[in-house]
């Protein structure tokens, strides 16, 4: 699935990072605990989270993830947007809750890497 489709399925607002929209991704991961995200390296390219702080960006960066979706309309701070831009990570925000957002993506065909 392309990042662009993730945005469409979740009716998400793009905050930064148009550059990755046409990249193809195969799995995602949803969690508010960054250590859990760091525990399961499986080439997940997308992180869904309700957590908003700089460590969310760094965690994604460590994991070589290319897109972070904030659920429940959470908005990243300016500092986070800057970090993400430097790291080449796309940020978006959706009104959906975590459970629904993961379910929608899974149903739309974004496969098995979904945890927590």
């Amino acid at each position: 699935m392309r990042i662009r489709q993730i945005q469409e399925v979740l009716e998400a607002e793009l905050i930064v990072g148009e550059g990755t929209l046409d990249k193809d991704v195969h799995s995602a991961c949803g969690s508010d605990m960054m250590s859990d995200v760091l525990a399961y390296v499986k080439d997940q390219a997308v992180l869904l989270t309700g957590l908003v702080n700089a460590q969310v960006i760094r965690t994604a960066q460590m994991m070589d993830m290319i897109c972070i979706v904030f659920v429940r309309s959470k908005q990243p701070t300016e500092d986070m947007i800057e970090l993400a831009a430097e790291a080449g990570i796309t940020l978006m925000s959706t009104e959906k809750r975590m459970y629904e957002a993961c379910g929608l993506l899974y149903t739309a065909g974004l496969g098995n890497g979904v945890i927590a």
Binding site: D32, A39, V41, Q55
Partner: peptide
């Protein structure tokens, strides 16, 4: 610390694993 996304007790095990 937990509300910041850490403190799940996975840090040291992760460090060993990787």
């Amino acid at each position: 610390v937990r509300s910041l996304g850490f403190g799940a007790g996975m840090g040291l095990p992760n460090m060993k694993r990787y």
